[in-house]
Design a binder for these strands. Structure first.
Lengths: 131, 131
DNA sequence: CGGTATCCAACAGGATACTG
DNA sequence: CAGTATCCTGTTGGATACCG
């Protein structure tokens, strides 16, 4: 397990040097898309394992096509696993992997930040726009 | 200051309930775009304050137009401040705000995750693609 | 049920040229 | 110097219809 970075002081140089910075951007682009975070969080909310229509209900507003492609990307990345039961009608379970669950933890950091500061961001935007 | 969330167990329900979940997605979409993170990190790397061409040099590959619009968005969000010196030729300084700096901290969590797990993600992708 | 195929609108962002 | 204007392309994602 990786230990959480000690707070206090942050070294942006270390951030930029750490492995390849592209990984960071790719990760952010990936989980920063319109639905991934919600799908991951909803799947965890459903106990870490759920069927397609359960997920669809748990993520209001998502279309079938987007849920499908989002899950495929998550599966490709190893964050969820897909299990097909060859029944009629077919049934598919999606389950969080340990890797997927491990991503929830740092995500929490951003959630906390958004929770703590988003209102201020909105106000700043408003002031900027109404100048 | 917000205290880092205690590890051990994570409550996704809390994540989903925390303020509005839209804030989280908007934040991720924002910093998950192609250049924002690099601009923010580079600005911090340059000591938290820099001029336009310094930033441009510090972020290889970014175009003038994109750097400009990225900075404008960051300014609108209150993550950086823009200071114009009415000289000829004009000169503009960009500086990180405390809010902007505070975002670096949770970002570090994702950086750590990417550093620790990205190779595994790539391998998983490769295996998925070559099936 | 759990998708894929097709079509389309919106937007991000790159190249280039121009301006106060 | 520090942008903006214009043009253009690729990608994201929404709607709908069809398939095994």
């Amino acid at each position: 397990m990786k230990k959480p970075s000690r707070a206090g002081h942050l070294d942006p140089a270390a951030i930029c040097r750490s492995s390849n910075p592209m990984a960071v951007r790719e990760l952010l682009t990936k989980i920063g898309d319109k639905w991934s975070i919600f799908v991951v969080l909803s799947l965890e909310l459903l106990g870490g394992r759920a069927r397609f229509p359960e997920l669809k209900r748990a993520v209001p507003g998502i279309s079938q096509r987007i849920l499908s492609s989002t899950l495929k990307t998550l599966e490709r990345d190893g964050l969820v696993v897909r299990e097909l039961f060859p029944e009629v009608p077919p049934r598919v379970d999606y389950e969080m992997t340990d890797l997927g669950k491990s991503l929830l933890l740092p995500t929490q950091g951003l959630v906390d930040w958004a929770k703590a500061n988003w209102e201020q961001v909105r106000e700043t935007q408003f002031r900027y726009d109404t100048r």
